[in-house]
């Protein structure tokens, strides 16, 4: 029973081994590129302060809208003469930090609620599922816009808001897996040995559902990047003088005809990053968890 609903961890069934081998032989180049790109992005985010050639707000009035390839300003400058490369590096850091923070918040929050629903059932479960329905029924973008309208924009609010993105998926997955594990599976067996819920959930259920949750994280991560950059693009996310990828594209939009490079570089970074994570996520999903699409 549980064999079909739970991810197999160390299993080496012949079917699986064949699939992994197939993936290893047919996928590696794309996956390696994706991993390489993501590693570069993470390193850029970590060492942003060292890598930046200029201050992100440093304006050079003599070098306004310099095209790509200008010595010292390899990706050009914007309308105020600020270095696009430096701003891009800082944007990568800001966007990745927001997306990482939000992904982790939403995974922890959603999983916790899902486990609570599975543990207490009854009205707790009904409440969590009703909240999940509500979250799924209201487009997240619209909800975020409403919250930002009422509270004004701030970095903390933005991360907190993005931290709600996709929590209902983790909650549903965690609840479903925990219930099936308790009903007739290993978790029920441990409960009947006399274990406290904390032990059952942290030592047994969490490690068993981790791979499924990680796969969901690879789904929500790029979506959060897109959500944040969409809001920032509209001028409602990250606020100047701070900068993020979407925010750069938003500014570049006004110079689309005269200085397309301002929006080009951040657009490419967004597309390549979300693409890499999606590819990697797909690959991981096939490898770790054949039961979900």
């Amino acid at each position: 029973m549980t064999d079909t609903t739970l991810p197999e961890g160390t299993g080496t069934s012949p079917v699986k081994a064949g699939m992994v081998r197939r993936l290893r032989t047919s996928m590696p180049l794309v996956i390696w590129c994706a991993v390489g790109w993501l590693a570069a992005m993470v390193l850029t985010a970590i060492f942003a302060d060292l890598l930046r050639p200029h201050e992100i707000t440093a304006m050079s009035l003599t070098q306004r809208m310099a095209p790509m390839g200008t010595p010292g300003y390899w990706l050009g400058t914007d309308d105020l003469g600020r270095d696009v490369l430096s701003r891009l590096i800082q944007s990568i850091r800001v966007s990745l930090v927001i997306a990482f923070g939000a992904t982790i918040i939403s995974a922890v929050f959603g999983t916790t609620l899902g486990f609570l629903a599975a543990q207490f059932r009854g009205w707790v479960e009904n409440l969590v599922m009703a909240l999940a329905d509500f979250q799924a029924a209201l487009p997240f973008m619209i909800m975020s816009l409403a919250v930002l309208a009422f509270f004004g924009t701030s970095m903390v609010l933005l991360v907190g808001l993005m931290g709600f993105y996709g929590w209902e998926r983790y909650a549903r997955i965690a609840r479903g897996l925990a219930i099936s594990a308790s009903a007739q599976g290993y978790a029920g067996a441990v409960v009947q040995l006399g274990a406290k819920p904390s032990r059952v959930y942290l030592r047994h259920i969490l490690p068993n559902v981790a791979s499924t949750l990680i796969v969901s994280m690879t789904l929500t991560f790029p979506e959060i990047i897109l959500m944040e950059s969409g809001l920032s693009f509209l001028g409602l996310g990250v606020q100047p003088p701070q900068t993020s990828l979407g925010n750069m594209v938003g500014f570049g939009r006004e110079y689309l005809t005269r200085a397309p490079w301002i929006m080009l570089a951040p657009s490419v970074v967004i597309v390549l990053t979300t693409l890499s994570i999606s590819l990697l996520g797909d690959w991981l999903r096939d490898r770790l968890d054949p039961t979900i699409r």
Binding site: M1, T2, D3, L6, E8, G9, T10, G11, Q184, G185, Y186, G188, A189, V190, H204, P207, N208
Partner: peptide, 9 residues
Amino acid sequence: DPLAALDRR
């Protein structure tokens, strides 16, 4: 079912 009663990890 002993397999279901054991934690596979």
